[in-house]
Amino acid sequence: MSLLDIDERLLDLIEKVEFGRSPINDIKVPGACDIGLVEGGLCNEDNVRTLNEFRENCSILVAVGACAINGGVPALRNEIDLKDCLETSYLTGVGIVDAQIPNDSELPLLLDKVHPIFDAVKIDYVLPGCPPPAEAFLELVTAVIEGREPNLGYQLRRFD
């Protein structure tokens, strides 16, 4: 979503790109595509399938943000047994009404550990940050359109 922080420059960009599957247009299945931007870590089987679909369809796949690159906050659960995690969240935690663990077979199965996305597919570029700066998105996409290597200056990679 921080892609939207490029503000009015979005209007220039939209002249050059077309959005495939994205939260903006609600397309469910990606078609052949030049750039795939993937955020978030891999938490469940559905995430893994979606990521594989992206990899099959995108020429360039980019890991966007801390969770996609490192696992981030969701990966904090990696030190805790999955069963304990579910029980605390749905049975024994504070303020729970009608305690039960969601168990519908429609729900995707959780992975035992949260993985960064390059654990499952080959990644071409990373955009670090939480979230990455809008300028970084713009530079990456522009560079790919212009057919050159992106150049993310130091200011776009430091976060302290």
Binding site: N44, E45, I101, N103, L109, D112, H115, D119, V121, K122
Partner: peptide, 24 residues
Amino acid sequence: PEFIPVFDLAKATAYSRSLREENH
């Protein structure tokens, strides 16, 4: 090979599958 995933999906979901069956 150019790339090999570091985890196997079936193995990585086995635990959560067993928890689900237990609950059912």
